[in-house]
Amino acid sequence: MGAWGTAIFSDDLASDIKDEFRELIAEGHDGETATNIVVENWKSELEDYEVRSVFWLSLALEIIISGEDLKRWEEEPKLLIQRKKVLEKLMNQLNQPQCEPKKIPKRFIAQTDFERGDAIGYKLLSGKYIILKVITVIEQHSGDRYPLFELCNWVSTEFPDKIDIGSFNLLEWTFGNGKKELKKLAIFPSGKKDYPFERITVIAKNVPIQLSDSTPYMLLAWKQFDDDLRKFYNLE
Rank of each mutant, 00 (worst) to 15 (best):
L90R: 09
I65M: 12
E68V: 12
D48A: 13
N36H: 09
D48W: 13
E62C: 10
A7K: 10
K78I: 12
V86E: 15
Q82G: 09
D11Y: 00
S58P: 01
G67E: 05
F21S: 05
D30L: 06
L57T: 03
L70A: 01
I17W: 03
L70I: 02
K18D: 07
L46M: 12
G67F: 02
I37M: 07
D16Y: 11
I65Q: 14
S66N: 02
E76R: 04
E32I: 15
E74Y: 00
S66E: 00
F55K: 08
A26I: 06
F55W: 05
L61P: 00
V38C: 11
A7P: 01
K18S: 11
L70E: 01
I37N: 02
T35A: 06
D19N: 15
I25F: 09
V54R: 08
V39Q: 11
I65E: 14
E75S: 12
A14K: 00
I65A: 09
D48F: 12
L61D: 04
G31T: 10
D30N: 14
D11N: 07
R83Q: 15
G5D: 04
D19W: 13
F55L: 12
V39R: 12
R83E: 15
I25P: 02
F21A: 06
G5P: 02
E32N: 14
T33K: 14
V39C: 09
T33C: 04
Y49K: 10
V54C: 01
I65P: 03
D16F: 07
E62H: 06
E32Q: 13
E68W: 08
Y49C: 03
E32M: 13
D11M: 00
E47L: 13
K18M: 10
A26E: 15
